[in-house]
Amino acid sequence: MASYLITGSSRGLGLALVSRLASLPAAQVGKVIATARQDNSPQLTEIVEASSGRVELVKMDVTNKSSIQEVAKLVEGKLQGKGLDYLINNAGLADYAPAGLEGMDNLNELFHTNVTSVHNVTQGFLPLLRKGEKKVVINISTTLGSFAKAEVYRLSPTPAYKISKAALNMLTIQYAQQYEADGFTFVAISPGWLRTDLGSSRADLPVETGAEKVVDIVQQIGPHQNGKFLNIHVPGWENAPGNNQYDGEEVGW
């Protein structure tokens, strides 16, 4: 009965992750702490009310260190002396800069949410993760943050998003290296181009598919994958034409 904490749970991939975890047997998923900046998501509230106490909504602003610290203490009480098994850092922002770098005026904002806030959340929950059996931290990244695939996504007008996610990938590696000896596993996962507010209706996959495939990876992760950057696997998409393939392999940094 593993415990999970997910940031950015009120919509998009975060909401779909909570829904997917709540649908699994209690023997696999015990407690799910769904955090969000606002607690006014009808869909999330519905999941919480139908979960028989397995899913709890906690208001947390990932960009506010005091909020993170307060919630860490609250979650400690909710876990009743047990540790946290899985932390999924999902909350994030994207940009749209059709003028390219000349029009990029939000790098600090995206860096704070996509990188600094992930560090602060991870740092804040490390004591609970140390007490957990799994000690797994998942950072939701993107292939747009891959140096190896930079040419593939040359025309994508999201420079601040690319830059911040590349930095998130390095943050993942730094944590993986420092805490490997303590039994932690830190992994970056690209969930695919999903039909959310962030991904748009033109995206490749329904958000439910992305969530299902991310959870598949999460539940099979072991220490041998510490510090890896992983792609989801969607049958039929392994060699799809275009920029995106979902083959379940490691993504080039």
Score class of each variant (00 low, 15 high):
Leu144Pro: 03
Leu79Ile: 06
Gln123Trp: 15
Ala148Ile: 09
Val214Cys: 06
Glu76Asp: 07
Asn108Glu: 13
Val215Leu: 11
Lys149Arg: 15
Asn231Ser: 09
Phe184Val: 02
Leu128Asp: 01
Glu212Asn: 06
Thr113Cys: 13
Ser200Trp: 08
Glu133Tyr: 09
Gly222Gln: 14
Trp237Pro: 05
Arg37Leu: 14
Trp253Pro: 01
Ala181Cys: 06
Ala188Leu: 12
Val137Trp: 12
Ala72Leu: 10
Ala148Tyr: 11
Leu15Ala: 09
Asn120His: 15
Asp95Phe: 05
Gln177Ile: 14
Phe186Gly: 10
Gln245Trp: 03
Arg202Ala: 12
Phe111Arg: 07
Leu205Val: 07
Lys149Ile: 09
Ser200Val: 00
Leu128Gly: 11
Gly8Cys: 02
Ser66Ala: 14
Trp193Phe: 07
Tyr179Pro: 07
Arg195His: 02
Gln245Tyr: 01
Glu102Val: 10
Leu87Trp: 09
Ile189Met: 09
Trp193Gln: 04
Glu109His: 03
Gly222Ala: 05
Gly83Asp: 00
Asn106Phe: 04
Ala36Lys: 05
Val218Asp: 00
Tyr161Thr: 00
Val62Lys: 00
Val18Gln: 02
Leu129Tyr: 11
His224Ile: 12
Arg154Pro: 01
Lys31His: 15
Gly92Lys: 13
Leu93Asp: 12
Tyr175Phe: 14
Tyr153Phe: 15
Met170Glu: 11
Ser190Gln: 15
Gly81Cys: 12
Asp247Pro: 04
Asp61Val: 10
Val251Cys: 05
Ala99Leu: 13
Glu212Arg: 14
Val48Ile: 10
Glu133Asn: 13
Thr7Trp: 10
Val18Phe: 04
Val75Pro: 02
Thr63Glu: 14
Pro127Thr: 02
Lys31Asn: 09
Leu5Gln: 04
Ala26Trp: 13
Pro159Thr: 03
Lys213Met: 13
Thr185Asn: 05
Glu46Arg: 15
Ala176Ile: 10
Gly92Trp: 14
Glu212Gly: 03
Gly248Val: 12
Thr196Asn: 01
Ala27Asn: 08
Leu21Gly: 00
Val187Met: 12
Lys135His: 08
Leu87Asp: 06
Asp182Lys: 15
Val214Gly: 10
Ala167Arg: 13
Glu70His: 14
Glu250Phe: 05
Val48His: 06
Pro241Lys: 11
Phe111Gln: 04
Gly248Thr: 11
Ala150Gln: 09
